[in-house]
């Protein structure tokens, strides 16, 4: 599903689309926009998208990336789908806490825990 210039890895597991980032730093606006567009296509392909985004490989995340996540969350909710986030490093999780986005997103410690939320 991911092309050679893709910034994400995508796989389907039990009806859930699992997304991982290729880059360790999610900072570059052009890359963030490309990630948003790739995920937009995933959302558009499903009548009720179930998406799990893993941050397992991510060291740095900017507010621009948070903005894209918010937009993704809104689009999925508008299609009666579900978005979960998982594997967030404690330093990055603090960014979610500072911005209070930990209260907006459904965040789980691990992919396995998040998968149970889709059941």
């Amino acid at each position: 599903m991911s092309g050679s210039d893709s910034r994400i890895r995508v796989k389907e597991v039990d009806g859930v689309t699992q997304v991982e980032f290729i880059d360790r730093n999610i900072l570059d606006e052009a890359n963030i926009q490309a990630i948003g567009e790739e995920i937009d296509r995933i959302i558009a392909d499903s009548p009720s998208p179930k998406l799990l985004i893993s941050f397992a490989n991510v060291d740095h995340l900017s507010s621009a990336a948070l903005g894209t996540l918010i937009t993704i969350n809104t689009k999925i909710r508008n299609r009666a789908g579900k978005l979960c986030l998982a594997d967030i490093d404690p330093q990055i999780y603090e960014v979610f806490v500072i911005t209070r986005l930990n209260q907006l997103f459904d965040i789980h410690e691990s992919k396995e825990a998040a998968m149970k939320a889709f059941a």
């Binding site: 948070l66 903005g67 918010i70 937009t71 911005t99 907006l104």
Partner: peptide, 22 residues
């Protein structure tokens, strides 16, 4: 203030909050 309930789903405006927090 992007941390207010009414602004929580606005995609932008968090840069200053992060700079001030860190």
């Amino acid at each position: 203030d992007p941390t207010l309930d009414e602004n929580l789903e606005n995609p932008g405006g968090r840069g200053l909050v992060l700079m001030r927090a860190y």
